Simulated scan of single mutants.
Amino acid sequence: MRETSPIDLLRQALPGLPPRLQAAGRYVAQHDFDAATRSMRDLAAAAGAPPATFTRLAQALGYTGWEALREALIEARRGAGGAPYSARARRNPGGDLPAAMLAADAEALARLDPAPVAAAARALHEAPRIWIAGFRSCRGVAQLLHYQLRLFRPDSVRLIGGAGPEDLDLGALRPGDAAVLISFAPYSRAIVLAARAAREGGCTTIALADRPHAAMAEGAAHLLRFDAATSPGFFPSLTGALALAQALAAACFALGGEASLVRLRETEARLAAIAAYTPEQDLPS
């Protein structure tokens, strides 16, 4: 393992590189996450350079080729991002932490922009099928949105990876479908792959993300931003993501009008018929 990180090595080598390799090197240094997660061909297209330029750049830095440099970038990010939560815990303020967390969440909710939600809801309403992707800590947000949408669209909403391997769902994405992608930094490899599959599949993508330049939000038709970083707790806050997911489901329901209401009533009747809920009179006093 190299003692110097690949990005530091790159920065040190930049002055002595030819102009074309300098341009490619600066792009890698500024977009190290993309360099670690995208193919060389995709990265070259985004940088506006021939793919061979990145091979020559890697070799100029002492690597056998681009894949060797890419593996070093992945390893460097793994080391830097291996403790995203414990590092936050060391920065926690003293005093009344619960009160500080609730206050931070309230302020973050007040900053949410409702305008993009309406446009994204229309895209969901018009799509024949809706796919929802959220992994790791964002899985709960994805499951909530999936549940609420299925109450009035029971046959056209799917949770990616919910009933089998994720790759089978990603292979089923089709033009005209809508894909909702939920994540915050550090972004999981699974959500980046889902975003790429949605783009390549011709889906209308809706990203619930913490940053406009998030890798999983690239090319998204709609971006719903939430603040995950200002919570003083050890774990980034998902309150904004949950609020956006619920607002998105409610707005989609409203666009469906009477048809959505009919399907919701049918779902409720079915749940009642199978005794999904415990009658209040049966609860212990």
Rank of each mutant, 00 (worst) to 15 (best):
L144Q: 07
A119R: 15
R139L: 13
A207G: 08
P186T: 12
D167T: 04
G79T: 11
A254N: 05
A83G: 01
L69D: 00
L149M: 12
T205C: 14
G94S: 13
A80R: 15
G164S: 08
G171S: 12
A185D: 05
W131N: 00
G202N: 07
D227Q: 02
L255I: 05
E200Q: 15
L43G: 02
A118K: 05
A251I: 02
G94K: 10
L248M: 11
G81N: 13
Y147M: 13
T53P: 00
P114I: 04
A121W: 13
E126V: 11
A214K: 10
T278N: 03
P50V: 01
E258V: 09
D96S: 04
R265E: 14
A185S: 12
T55W: 05
T278Y: 04
P236W: 07
R129F: 10
R196P: 01
A275Q: 14
A163R: 10
L73D: 03
G134A: 06
G201E: 03
P50K: 12
T205F: 08
L61C: 05
V28Q: 09
A229S: 09
H222P: 00
H125P: 00
S86L: 15
A89M: 12
D282H: 11
A276E: 04
R225H: 00
G48L: 03
L173A: 09
A24F: 05
T55V: 14
A276T: 07
A13E: 00
G176T: 04
A273T: 05
A276F: 13
A220Q: 01
T37I: 01
A68M: 02
A247P: 06
R136V: 12
P128Y: 08
P50E: 14
E200V: 10
G162V: 03
R263G: 01
A108N: 07
L149I: 10
G48F: 03
L97P: 09
Q12E: 13
P165S: 10
L255R: 14
A104G: 07
T239K: 02
D227E: 07
E280A: 15
A272Q: 14
H146S: 14
F226Q: 05
A272F: 04
A36I: 10
L57M: 11
A87G: 05
R225F: 00
C203D: 06
I7R: 15
E71F: 04
V157Y: 01
A269K: 12
A49S: 12
C138H: 10
A58G: 07
L248F: 12
G257S: 13
P128Q: 09
A87H: 04
G94P: 06
